[in-house]
Every structure is written in C-alpha cells, then in structure tokens.
C-alpha cells in the first residue's frame, strides 16, 4: 500500500499546505482567515511543518507592524505533490 506522509496527512496541516501551494508566500493573517484555525492551533501546526522543512517562516516588520511571512519550501511542494499522488493511488484513481 502507498505510504502517506504523516506530517501532511493531518487535516489542519494539509489545509495549510494546500493553501500555501497556491501562492508564492502569504502572511499569518491570510492563513489564519482562510484556514479557519485558531491562532494557537495554526502556530503549532506551522511550527511542525517548519520543523519538517516543508514551510519557511520569515518574521519581519512592515512599518511598525510585525509581519510573519510563510511559504512552502521546495521540499514542501514536492511532499504535497507526492501526497496528492499517493492519495489518488489509495483511492484507486492512480
């Protein structure tokens, strides 16, 4: 049976990765609104994805406002692509 990536397979993290797959980078606020997760939940899942090397986090300031930018790394994009292929195989579409 095809192995599914456990880091991405978790529903909240899959949502984060799928959202970031459609952009070059996005800030925490956008991800918070689109994922409908709580701040704490989103932070912990982003930390797990960062730890796995799938998401890069860059903290900076825009004027006086803190800005946390997130983007999917090459490894993250590749893992997401692999996950989708694995899912299709599991569901018998591959």
């Amino acid at each position: 049976m095809t192995e599914l990536d456990r880091v991405i397979h978790e529903p909240a993290r899959l949502r984060i990765v799928a959202l970031l797959a459609g952009v070059e980078e996005a800030d925490f606020l956008w991800l918070l609104r689109e994922s409908a997760l709580t701040k704490g939940n989103l932070s912990s899942h982003v930390a797990r994805l960062e730890e796995a090397g799938y998401v890069a986090v860059e903290k900076s300031f825009r004027g006086k406002i803190p800005l946390t930018l997130l983007r999917l790394t090459d490894a993250g994009r590749s893992a997401f692509g692999g996950y989708k292929r694995a899912m299709k195989a599991v569901l018998g579409k591959g």
């Binding site: 899959l14 797959a21 459609g22 952009v23």
Partner: peptide
Amino acid sequence: MATDAQLRDLEQRPQRYW
C-alpha cells in the same frame, strides 16, 4: 480525509482572494 475537490478548492483560494 480531504478529497481531490477539497484540495483543489483550497489551492484556488488565492485566486478567489484576488
């Protein structure tokens, strides 16, 4: 388990945000 359609929907959110 997320379906193909759900994943596509998430990937298309940035375009809708525009």
